[in-house]
């Protein structure tokens, strides 16, 4: 088999570096004096960004002939997940649930 890769796994090391930085950043933000909702928005954004790093740099999501199908599938799943989570919180914290 021909060697298609470079010997040094630069992409993976960079991905790992980014993941560490974002995890540490999340921990730093956690200890700051911002209000909880501001902190939650920041660390939430960091989590989503870190998930993207994993998907693209470690999982090679857009690689191969089905790269585009993989991407569409995952984006669709994430959309469904967001609807389930945000929708549940919305429905169960407003309307009747909040005023019985």
């Amino acid at each position: 088999m021909e060697k298609t890769n470079k010997i040094f796994p630069g992409k993976m090391v960079f991905g790992f570096f980014l993941s560490i930085v974002m995890t540490v950043l999340a921990a730093i933000v956690f200890y700051t004096d911002f209000t909880s909702s501001v902190k939650l928005w920041i660390i939430g954004a960091l989590a989503i960004f870190q998930a993207g790093v994993q998907l693209i740099m470690f999982m090679h999501m857009n690689e191969g002939k089905s790269g585009m199908i993989n991407t569409i599938n995952i984006v669709y799943s994430v959309f469904i997940a967001a609807v389930i989570v945000a929708g549940s919180i919305w429905i169960l914290s407003t309307g009747h649930a909040a005023h019985y």
Binding site: M61, S66, I69, N73, I74, S77, V85
Partner: peptide, 15 residues
């Protein structure tokens, strides 16, 4: 490809 589709289902399960 099939495994990626399974992972899509797992995302929804965990959601």
């Amino acid at each position: 490809l099939g495994f990626w589709i399974f992972l899509g289902a797992e995302i929804v399960l965990f959601s």
